[in-house]
Amino acid sequence: MDNTPDQSLVESLLELIRVTSSTLPADVKKVIKEAHAREKEGTNAKYAMQIINENIALAEKNSGPICQDTGTIIFNVYHPPGFNQGKFSLAAKQAVMNATSKGYLRQNSVDSLTGKNSGNNVGPGHPSLHFHEHEGNSLEVRLMLKGGGCENMGAQYSLPHTELSADRDIVGVRKVILDAVVKAQGKGCGPGILGVAIGGDRGDGYIESKVQLLRKLDDKNPNPVLDELEKDIVVASNKLAIGPMGFGGETTLLGCKIGVLNRLPASYFVSVSYMCWAFRRQGVVLNGASKISKWLY
């Protein structure tokens, strides 16, 4: 295989990383503004939301990272049949290294055994690349930067769950999702957004929970049962009054997206990924010359 990355693709992915790290998508900014307006004057929660809004504007202006934890770099690539994944991976790694030296990304990749930082965000499992073949000729690249603070608040439940009296039904699912919100408190940099997968094995469940986070916040789940559950989780979570940063307040969750996978008769997993308010996700459509032809969020 030719080991020189496609420079045009490297440039486009570098731009995707820069924008993702510094600019929140419009759907996220909208719900954060609404949350700010909802908090009561003079409270710690209002103060937190005010600083969050200032930070969003400043990061965009400075073209600097919204959060210093630029997170796991998760690429989801939707490509036509016959696409060369190896060449794409090469370009993605180069773009990540360039973005790190420019300060769009923190040196964030550590050898789990030695503790040594690779210094360039590349190493086993980094960046995280997921390829999906789809119909048609377009190449879509969706990027999410997911910080460690919120990733640590993720949880996977196996139903039935005795302590919570959560059975293998939608009521049980609701209980464990809300339990994850209570356990997270403000530690995941709330107000947060949940991506949830019902079913799958342990690995696929967590992956699907993150794919759910690629949906726009204002979309509607085509499954009416899940659509209702998504709305209910947000309303119920806000009643918990954990609030921004866990200071107490009106908004605990900004959104919830739920997907479903088949399961084995013996297993019933509910996998919850918690995303912080600094919900960095962007996507691009690339043309035949690997130039950005469209932004997806």
Binding site: A48, P65, C67, Q68, W277, A278
Partner: peptide, 27 residues
């Protein structure tokens, strides 16, 4: 405020020293 890296960086007026750099820049 978690995640407010730009607002907080702006309030840092100088970096005067660094110790234990062998732990890696973030650490």
């Amino acid at each position: 405020i978690g995640g407010a890296a730009q607002v907080l960086a702006e309030r840092i007026t100088s970096v005067d020293n660094v110790y234990l750099m062998e732990l890696g820049s973030p650490e």
